[in-house]
Amino acid sequence: MMSQVFLAVALAIVLLIFPCLVRALGGPTVLDRIVGVNMIGTKTTVLLLLIGLIYKDLSMFVDIALAYAFLNFIATIGACKFFRRSKQVHLEDDLVTEEEASA
């Protein structure tokens, strides 16, 4: 009975990843993409634990989840630092503005 609940929760989390993916793919700024990817990473940490419960091998998946949490954090910090340094970041994705199009 409980394993079905866990399966439903895992499916719900997978469905919730797709809207984050929309934000990660659709911008509009680079930092929005970082937020989207960061949220996908947090959800994946939980998802790994749920997969461990469903396959009844939690002690193995806990290790993977812990490593995933570490690396997700480091990746976010690194990406933020990188875009802080590069001054020529294109903030908006629709690069052609109206003035440029008419010129």
Binding site: S59, M60, D63, I64, A67, F70, L71, I74
Partner: peptide
Amino acid sequence: SPGGGFQGGVVLGA
């Protein structure tokens, strides 16, 4: 358990 030299090295380097 999952892991080994490469993965541990990656975490240490990180």
